[in-house]
Simulated scan of single mutants.
Amino acid sequence: MMAVAVIWGSALALYLLFRLWYDNWSGPLKADEIDSFIDATQDRFEASGNNVSVLRAFLEADDGREFIMLNLVKAQMDDVKDPVTGQMVQGLSLLQRYSKRFMPVLFRNGGHPVMVGRKVGGYIDAWNTEGDPGWTIFGLMRYRSRRDMVKLVMDPTFKEGHPDKMLGTLATFSFPTQRVLSLYLGPRVSSAIVIALGAAIAHIIWLSV
């Protein structure tokens, strides 16, 4: 019985560790955190043509919950000058290099891709909107919290990769969303199933020994 307790106790501990990483335990952003972040990034946001007041409003409305960022990207398919090597390379390759920098920082701050895909056709249904600029890819990125988004933007690795993003992207827009309905199992459920399955297999093996 001791072995069974160890197996299932370890499974529970593993799942709790996962939840400690995956969930936000720090609550909403505080006013001083928002002010410090805006002061540090305002010039960068405005240089990209963005309205920093929209960002501030989003941060000030922080409810401490996770959110999904919707990203639409028109990649640069022509050659551009690599800021590191000085050689001419396809802009898309710089965008891919940026993604390789971005993903570890995203994971480190409790985020992950939800879905990434390529565009395979023009607008099928659209009205009162700008024409299709020729989007290349879309991405849904899960952020553990708005604080974690702030940490990601301030991370030196992310900032170092930002020139690659700018050179590899002709057009983009992103806006945050919160899930209302989804038929996909989230990581909280899927990880619980995988851990429980592993513990059940270990339990069966122990019984058969």
Rank of each mutant, 00 (worst) to 15 (best):
G117P: 10
S36E: 14
M69I: 01
Q87G: 11
M141V: 11
V73C: 12
F37Q: 06
A5H: 05
L14Y: 00
R97Y: 04
V80H: 07
Y184A: 04
R65K: 08
E66W: 05
S10Q: 00
R44Y: 02
F18V: 01
G186W: 11
D148M: 04
M88N: 05
V114L: 03
A126F: 15
A5P: 03
S10V: 00
G131S: 01
H162W: 15
G49W: 05
W21F: 15
A31Q: 01
L92P: 14
A126M: 14
I124R: 15
M77N: 09
P133K: 08
R56F: 07
N109W: 01
M149C: 03
D132I: 05
K30M: 06
V105K: 02
K81R: 13
L140I: 06
S191A: 08
T85H: 15
V150K: 02
G27W: 15
N128D: 12
G121R: 04
V52G: 10
L92M: 14
A202D: 09
P28T: 14
T169V: 10
Q90S: 10
T85P: 13
L92T: 15
Y184E: 07
M115F: 12
H112R: 03
R44K: 00
G110N: 03
F37C: 06
M88S: 07
S93K: 00
V84E: 13
L17R: 00
I7H: 05
M141E: 09
N24K: 02
V73L: 13
I7G: 06
N50E: 12
R97D: 10
V194F: 09
L207V: 15
L20T: 12
